[in-house]
Design a protein around this nucleic acid. Sequence first.
DNA 1: TGGCGTTGTTTGATATATCATACACGCGAT
DNA 2: ATCGCGTGTATGATATATCAAACAACGCCA
Lengths: 175, 175
Amino acid sequence: MDTWKEFEANELTHSAAHHLLAIYEVGEAYGGWARVSDIARRLNITRGSVSINLRTLKKRGWVQTDEHRLVKLSPKGLRVVHSVMAKRVIVKTFLRDVLGIAEAQAEIDSCKIEHLISHSTGQRLVHFLQFLTSGAPVSRQFLRQFRAFQASCPASRTCGVCKGQCLIDELKYAT
Amino acid sequence: MDTWKEFEANELTHSAAHHLLAIYEVGEAYGGWARVSDIARRLNITRGSVSINLRTLKKRGWVQTDEHRLVKLSPKGLRVVHSVMAKRVIVKTFLRDVLGIAEAQAEIDSCKIEHLISHSTGQRLVHFLQFLTSGAPVSRQFLRQFRAFQASCPASRTCGVCKGQCLIDELKYAT
DNA sequence: TGGCGTTGTTTGATATATCATACACGCGAT
DNA sequence: ATCGCGTGTATGATATATCAAACAACGCCA
């Protein structure tokens, strides 16, 4: 019923996830400590925005601050960052190495999705990639034949309603 | 640099996508025409919220209104709905039938992602599923052996930082 | 000791997305 | 004809997320 609301219910927003990632990346060379200015520069937003957003991140217990106003991830925040980073790598790897999507597009898609997929989905995707790249004969053969199949796929078929914008026509098998 | 901002730049928000889907579903039995009340009931939000959100949807050219205040998808809106529906089905099918994720979780994850994946990613995912379910010997064998591999996977390994919350440890192959 | 630049915060603005509540309109039943 | 209910809209509130601009504080340099 309210499945679609799970999106909003997610306590980790896209914005928050990237603030945490930025703190991690910026602080990497300074023992985990980051300055508001550098976080803002990294995200290409204003210092004011970062300052305001940090309130929520602190309230959630994801970051800690210094007496010098330096910012650091809490253990809880670090766990979130690890989780998000891992999911992005997994999704991007799948999109690029299995589906053959261009690096740039794979980056964009995985960046949008990284904070949304569940732990179990991420884990199963890892196992899938592990098996696919395990070097087992069946995996190698499958990948090779899939590449050939892809090459033979028509660029796109036209849908009566969407004029090629949707994929309905290609979904007959799924009904 | 600003890849992460693509999320906000997306003109089709999660909320908007589901409003359009609701209009489509509610209107299905009435020649595409839907009432604000029914849309609100469908989404489990107030009539007021729908009323306000419809302004944006109209401004974007996705819906049209009647002199009786009935709401209908424009041709452009219908294309969006087809595109989103198709992507949800594709992703859900992949999660459920390939990765073996439970129906409910697959529904939640695909619902979060449906409006975010690009057309090319959706199309390639379709081709992947087509090949996997084509009945080709290599596909059947691959799927069977993957199931066996999955069954042998340890439930989860513990990450020093995350205590099993992240998947970093399982990503060694990807570095 | 001044002054200037960087830094972090605050303020007022916009945009989305929701709520509860109040209001106005129309239609059907009495 | 009017009473009441359902419907759509409007209003004021909250929460997120951004901006520009103003402001205060600190440090460095002369």
